[in-house]
Write a protein that binds this DNA or RNA. Structure first.
Length: 510
RNA sequence: GUCUCGGUAGCUCAGCUGGUUAGAGCGGCGGAUUCAUAGCCCGCAGGUCGCGUGUUCAAGUCACGCUCGAGACACCA
């Protein structure tokens, strides 16, 4: 059984921004975690390539929509590789695989009698080519973008019978596991309680999209198209890609990770569409918060947008990962502060964990012939208890998507190990030969604790984890069972330790 | 306008169903130590718990009002 996790399919109107990096990093760590726990993971990401905005952006750049999409999609894909994202599928909504699945899906929904031709009417901005919300003063209201009066317009569109699924959706969102965090769930419940209305799924003024089979001048509107990428991606690499083979390969998704801005579509429209097609709704929708910058909203007009590419170059992907995963509680808004960023990386990764590794391996090498100490006796010690406790907490937190708390648990343990070391003072004990056995035990214990720290951090910072374990003389880490390696006492005695080198350099303020 | 969530030390936040001197991390200051990436460890830091009123023997923790911030109120990735 696959564990299916998705990022949103990012809109290729522009290059990846920090928000999409954030979402994707969250997904990546969860995907890695599940794999380490022995699950077969299908981590899906991709791009949404249709729509008026893209058509227009391409036109403005003097290229065809196809060329534009090819270019930006490639940028996205390469970008995720640069960030060391372990995705399994990258779906493009302009791909033939996707188009086929959309058509098959449409037929199923149609067969359920949930598609009908209706009239979309409302106040329309010619400049935006969009229907606007109806403000009270619509006739005199001016579109803020184009400064023009709105026009009343009727347009024939295909509609999806969402109203029919009022009850089904109410039942679905009743489950507290379905939408997280709670605050967002309340909003959705509130919204649904006011009654669901049918929504349009096609457009006639739009060329850049998937054609609706029965109506030659209609293309599918964004939600009917893009969300289906989650499904079509599953069988996209098969020889015989199809809706059915996608379903057979593991639908439904276990979790959609999304920004809070697109929650409603994922928590209401999407499940209803799936039920209509006789498919299962996703098991969970997890909406994370937005990122601000030094307390302010990021925006082009403010000129304070943080370019992820710069961050990557300046700090490296794992530092950014640590900051985003450890310091921001998943679901809440998070603030990106340069000063805090530097402090956190230096404190957590370099001082607390990095230095712990460095001091323990140094002692061991110095006193035990460049090796881990030989033991004459095994012992019970407080670090075993602490390790077991932190490991257990870590797993529980991660299982509940509390990645920040899980990360912090590693830090708690590392601090405890530093504490243990300071209390035992092996550097004092070693001065007297009769203490040698005790020193052996102490050093073994802190090395072993550090090994567990290095193992635990793996789904959060994969490279950092490997570096730690390598310094402890571990090899072939990829092929070892992760959970098994969380158990105490696996560090071999008298094993050669490489010369310690800092596994992470401290950052400086600008 | 209606509704939801939040406003706790310089910063980021914990504080469950009300109960001894309000907590953590980071920053700042001082100390101790040397195995280590000037690091780890120890101590200090005196914050009207947004404002006001009320309920109560007792409120950061409940009720009401106000204020500030974020968000939802259907076609905006």
């Amino acid at each position: 059984m696959n564990f299916i996790i998705t990022t949103p399919l990012y809109y290729v109107n522009d290059k990846p921004h920090l928000g999409s990096v954030y979402t994707t990093i969250i997904c990546d760590s969860i995907a890695r975690y599940k794999r380490l726990r022995g699950e077969k993971v299908l981590f899906i990401t991709g791009v949404d390539e249709h729509g008026l905005k893209i058509q227009r952006t391409a036109f403005n750049n003097g290229v065809s929509p196809k060329e534009h999409c090819d270019e930006i999609s490639e940028i996205f894909k390469k970008n995720w590789l640069k960030w060391n994202i372990s995705f399994n599928k990258f779906i493009r909504t302009t791909s033939p695989e996707h188009e086929k699945v959309v058509h098959e899906f449409y037929e199923k929904v149609k067969a359920s009698n949930d598609i009908y031709m209706g009239e979309q009417k409302g106040w329309y901005c010619v400049g935006c080519e969009e229907f606007k919300d109806n403000p009270d003063n619509s006739p005199s209201y001016k579109c803020p973008i184009h400064k023009k009066n709105l026009e009343w317009k009727n347009e024939n569109n295909l509609f999806f019978r969402l109203s029919k699924y009022q009850k089904a959706i109410e039942e679905l969102i009743q489950d507290p596991e379905f939408i997280e965090p709670k605050e967002r769930r309340n909003e959705i419940i509130n919204f649904v309680s006011k009654g669901l209305k049918d929504f349009s799924i096609s457009r006639t003024n739009l060329d850049w999209g998937i054609r609706v089979p029965d109506y030659i001048n209609h293309t599918f509107y964004v939600w009917f198209d893009a969300l289906l990428g989650y499904v079509s991606s599953i069988s996209s690499d098969d020889n015989k890609y199809s809706l059915d083979s996608s379903i057979e390969s593991g639908w439904p998704a276990n979790v959609h990770i999304i920004g809070k801005d697109i929650l409603r579509f994922h928590a209401i429209y999407w499940p209803a569409m799936l039920i209509s097609a006789g498919m299962k709704p996703p098991k969970k929708i997890l909406g994370h918060g937005f990122l601000t910058r030094e307390g302010q909203k990021m925006g082009k007009s403010l000129g304070n947008v943080l370019d992820p590419e710069n961050l990557l170059k300046k700090y490296g992907e794992e530092s950014v990962r640590w900051y985003l995963l450890k310091d921001i509680s998943l679901g809440s808004d998070g603030d990106f502060q340069d000063r805090r960023f530097v402090d956190i990386i230096n404190n957590d990764l370099a001082n607390t964990i990095g230095n712990l590794l460095n001091r323990t391996t140094s002692m061991s090498r110095k006193w035990f012939n460049n090796q881990t100490p030989p033991l004459s006796e095994k012992n019970n010690n407080e670090l075993i208890t602490l390790a077991n406790k932190s490991t257990k907490n870590f797993l529980t937190y991660f299982d509940n998507f509390k990645i920040d708390k899980a990360s912090n648990e590693i830090l708690v343990f590392a601090t405890n190990v530093n504490l243990y070391l300071n209390k035992k003072e092996p550097w004092s004990l070693i001065k007297d030969d009769k203490n040698i056995n005790e020193v052996k035990l102490i050093i073994y214990n802190v090395l072993e604790a550090t090994r567990i720290i290095g193992t635990l951090i793996r789904p959060i910072l994969p490279e950092f984890s490997i570096k730690i374990l390598y310094q402890l003389g571990e090899n072939n880490i990829e092929n070892k069972d992760w959970e098994e390696n969380l158990k105490w006492g696996l560090l071999p005695e008298s094993r050669s330790l490489p010369k310690p080198i800092p596994i992470i350099n401290k950052l400086d303020y600008e």
